[in-house]
Design a protein around this nucleic acid. Structure first.
Lengths: 214, 214
DNA sequence: CCATGCCGATTGAATGTTCATTCGGTTATT
DNA sequence: AATAACCGAATGAACATTCAATCGGCATGG
């Protein structure tokens, strides 16, 4: 109830257009057209284009934080949490293919500077770092700085998701497990065992959609 | 002699501005100003802004191709080539911090569509794939699709370089070796040994610079 | 059950600004 | 002197944003 649906329609439209046309190349008029809304209406919901983009960024980022903390607070064994986290994030990016492109452009824009100090970013980083710190302390993971392990982990998710989006590498069947194995090997001591397949709980994480229109 | 220096000055200026201001947010007038050149002069060298950006992209991409094929055709042992490749690419991105941001924005722009079929991209992909195929055939690497190994490899370079640029993780001393070890573990069978430190030949890969100006 | 007034949502033409590009003229190079 | 490099004010198109006008639902009172 809080925010009418139109806000979200605009969000999804922007996401879509930015993937198609890039960060420039999507004027407000085009957003309005695609969202079946008058130009003025957008300004009823968002102060300016800048604000729209920043709020869209936060909207998505919160969903990522959600996924991480949900998976991270489950009570599974550490290695299972690790696998689930990888797979859940991967699925999120796969199922929301517009998100990665938007993120990359946002991060490289002037908007992002203000965001760096943002509380939620810290929450995100904090949660993930905590997860890896725990792994290091329990001698499960390599004794490297948690920032490094965290980067390797998230980097491999992002990379595989990007490959998927560009249709360069689409993981099939067992391959997704193979890749997570590789990621697990990279952050653990040689010889550490892999978790039982059967315990993994992987979610789809698709954002609700449909333009309201056809 | 072929292309006067001014072309390169413009290239580096654009690279710099795009990191600062983002892909939009850098008008031609600003490029001209920063490069100490009149607006019209840019059009003496480049047909349009679009062409300028595409040519800049190709200019940088060729340097990356250069690094890869140079390292790859050296006669070291496979594992040493692997380490050198990682380190050389990492150093290139570290020493040219404007490049990654530009790449990410370019790839997510409409310009990129035309580039996908480009011969050099195929050369790049081909070379790297060949390198991993070789590793798989010699049983050195895991029997996964070379595309996957290649993605994991390049992904970890890019991720660490990005972390460096954002000052989130700056690898110090032994850490760079630790990270390459991790990457090596991820693509090899458990128990495969690491190369001798002493044989590694790592280059700096800094693009020549200086604005011509202060 | 209708009439009236209220208010947020919505519209899209109009406005002013920013920007890529042009071009007539100037300077440097041969 | 001829050609190439360079300049920067002028041009016109594209764009973000504004705003006066309309819509539509809903509450009140007759």
């Amino acid at each position: 109830m809080e925010q009418p649906d139109k806000r979200h329609i605009i969000f999804y439209t922007v996401l879509e257009l930015i993937r198609e046309k890039g960060f420039h190349g999507t004027p407000m008029s085009m957003i309005a057209g695609r969202a079946n809304v008058a130009a003025g209406t957008i300004y009823h919901y968002f102060e300016s284009k800048d604000v729209l983009l920043v709020e869209l960024y936060q909207f998505i980022k919160n969903q990522v934080v959600e996924i991480i903390s949900e998976t991270e607070t489950s009570s599974e064994k550490y290695d299972e949490q690790f696998y689930n986290l990888w797979a859940n994030l991967y699925n999120f990016y796969i199922n929301n293919p517009n998100v990665l492109g938007f993120f990359e452009q946002f991060v490289n824009s002037p908007y992002y500077k203000d965001e760096l100090a943002d509380a939620n970013v810290c929450a995100l980083r904090g949660t993930l770092l905590g997860f890896f710190r725990k792994g290091i302390e329990s001698k499960m993971l390599m004794p490297l700085r948690p920032e490094i392990l965290s980067a390797l982990f998230h980097g491999s998710v992002i990379t595989m998701a990007k490959m998927h989006r560009l249709r360069k590498v689409v993981l099939e069947g067992e391959e997704i497990k193979d890749v997570i194995d590789a990621c697990w090997r990279s952050v653990t001591h040689a010889g550490t065992s892999y978790p039982e397949q059967s315990n993994l709980k992987i979610k789809l994480n698709k954002m609700e959609h449909e333009n309201g229109k056809v």
